Simulated assay, not measured.
Amino acid sequence: MSETRWVVLGRVVGQHGLRGELKLFSYTAPPERIFDYRVWRLKAADGREIELKRINGRVQGKALIVSLPGVLDRDAALAWMDAEVSVARAALPPLAQGEFYWADLEGLEVVTLEGVSLGKVSHLLSTGANDVMVVRDAERERLLPFVPGQWVQQVDLAAGRIVVDWDPAF
């Protein structure tokens, strides 16, 4: 595989029909936007990876259905269950100032206003009210609301750091 940085935008969640079609769960908004990306990387649960350049997909009711080259029956489709669908980070549209893709925040160090390190962003969760950063260090895991201006004071992607107004004892 190339040195391209990939961002997970979906997951194979089932099979559809007898001809090897797959059902997708998309993290894009709206979900069918995942079909706008012409190059995908599919990573199976067993570690196999393929890069796809021609994606044939459609919306069928509430489901997203995709056909993969060489996947022609239900047995072949089963081999891709739970596979992650990724696209190149460079293919994502630019964001407005102050907006961030979750993939860009993952791995950043989180420090308090006083410079105390709380750990690194493992991943983020959506709670409906606001997004939450899961911050881990060697000793513990913290859930910090990602609310710019209130808890999140600065995001410096170049420095790999997020500054938060947070009590390290909490």
Rank of each mutant, 00 (worst) to 15 (best):
L18A: 13
A96I: 12
A91K: 14
L18T: 09
P69I: 03
D82G: 07
W6A: 11
V121R: 12
S126I: 02
L22K: 00
D46Y: 09
R161I: 12
E32V: 07
V110K: 03
V116N: 07
G57C: 08
V71W: 02
R136D: 03
A88I: 10
G160L: 06
S126W: 09
G107F: 04
V39G: 02
V66R: 00
V66A: 00
A158N: 10
Y37E: 06
E141L: 11
V110R: 01
S117G: 07
Q15D: 00
P168T: 10
W166Q: 12
A129Y: 13
V164C: 06
M81F: 10
K53P: 08
P31K: 04
G47A: 08
P145L: 07
T28W: 11
Q150C: 08
G20I: 01
V164W: 04
L143D: 09
E32W: 03
P168A: 06
P31H: 08
R11I: 10
V85H: 00
G70N: 03
A129N: 14
P94A: 14
P69F: 04
G10D: 07
R19G: 01
R136S: 12
V12C: 00
N130A: 10
E106H: 06
R54Q: 13
D104A: 14
R33F: 05
D165A: 13
I50S: 07
R140P: 04
P30R: 04
M133R: 06
V121M: 11
Q97E: 15
L143Q: 15
E114F: 06
E51A: 13
K62S: 11
G70R: 01
V7T: 08
G160C: 09
G10S: 07
G128L: 01
Q153R: 15
K43H: 06
V164Q: 12
A90S: 09
R161P: 07
A29M: 11
A79W: 01
L144K: 09
D167T: 10
R38D: 08
M133Q: 03
I55A: 02
L24T: 03
V116C: 06
G128D: 01
V13S: 01
R54V: 15
Q154N: 15
M81W: 05
V121W: 06
